[in-house]
Design a protein around this nucleic acid. Structure first.
Lengths: 183, 183
DNA sequence: TGGGTCATGTAACCTGTTACATGATTAG
DNA sequence: CTAATCATGTAACAGGTTACATGACCCA
């Protein structure tokens, strides 16, 4: 997986510009796969060279001109190849800088660490609250791209998000409690 | 965070070779921060240039010669800077390719997706079982580096791992159940 | 005699991050 | 008046992945 597959996924729903793709990522996948606009534009250009996409310029008068991308048959093949590819450790092994930091936090005082965990918990709580927004976004998109099938998998990822943050909050609270007992 | 900080963390416990660092990663942090041996050696060289480390060659007769790294005061400063740096979204936003795949899985048949989730669940189960091993490793290291303080934070990350995989398994089962009802 | 452990690296490549640049229109 | 939206990109850099190379010793 790389950003390219995410872009192919969206373009498979219909033609989009880099700007729109950037928004689509922010509105839905951002929690699982953050993307910078600059990378989106760069990868779109690279994918056009590979002939996974074609593009055409759309002239506009009151707004800047834009470039609309369409997925090709090669692009669809690539997307399906990725979708049906069996996952090895994908999803099972997650890179998480916070956990590494925790691992080495024996160097710090308990009070510092309690604060670090409280911060973390609060950030998770904020993220959990924001999930409600994401669910709204999915509901809105649902109206445009009417397809109960698709919507189910969007909801599945949203569900994961909620479970994930709840778990993190519970874990942080457990650890804070233990640290307070140690103090 | 980058691999460099993880390496500094271990070297702060005592001098180590690239080979030993590679094993230390595999035995403990692998689930949160997988590292390739080639990157470890490359980053060690880069860190020596920055004077975060010094190294000396150890000659051996029946085994290949090796290079032992020691952390410098600059290296310790860098480590502490990172450890005490306030986390923004670190830990809150996790990159997870499997979730992206799920998001776009409306393109596939329900049967294919059930299989995908079953695979995922089984991988998580395997990972969960392997956590027992990690716990053993931590117990062993505990004897060498006797420090209850440190051990607590190692256990905290291990706890996270168990919680994480249990949550993933539960989520996958929920989704499989729903998909089976849709079939 | 084949595979695991010990031990270190190089090179090429791919992917992601940060900083910068431009400039019109529109809503508060 | 000022901030947001629309819209696209370049350049440099940092970090991670894959493939390859070497070679001895030891255990089954």
């Amino acid at each position: 997986m790389s950003l390219k597959h995410g872009l192919l996924g969206f373009l498979n729903y219909g033609d989009m510009t880099g700007y729109e793709l950037n928004k689509a990522f922010k509105d839905s996948l951002n929690f699982f796969w953050p993307a910078h606009a600059s990378q989106i534009y760069r990868d779109l250009a690279a994918m056009e060279k590979k002939e996974w996409l074609t593009s055409r310029r759309i002239m506009q008068e009151d707004k800047p001109n834009k470039r609309l991308y369409s997925i090709t048959d090669d692009g669809k093949d690539e997307l399906n190849k990725w979708l049906t590819l069996r996952n090895g450790d994908e999803g099972v092994c997650t890179r998480d800088a916070f956990l590494v930091k925790v691992f080495f936090s024996g160097e710090k005082t308990i009070d510092e660490n309690i604060k670090m965990f409280e911060d973390y918990r609060d950030n998770c709580q904020k993220a959990l609250n924001m999930r409600a927004k994401i669910d709204n976004n999915i509901d809105e998109y649902k109206k445009d791209i009417v397809d109960a099938q698709k919507a189910f998998y969007w909801m599945a990822t949203a569900q994961y998000g909620s479970h994930h943050y709840s778990m993190c909050i519970a874990w942080a609270n457990e650890m804070i409690e233990k640290m307070e007992a140690m103090r």
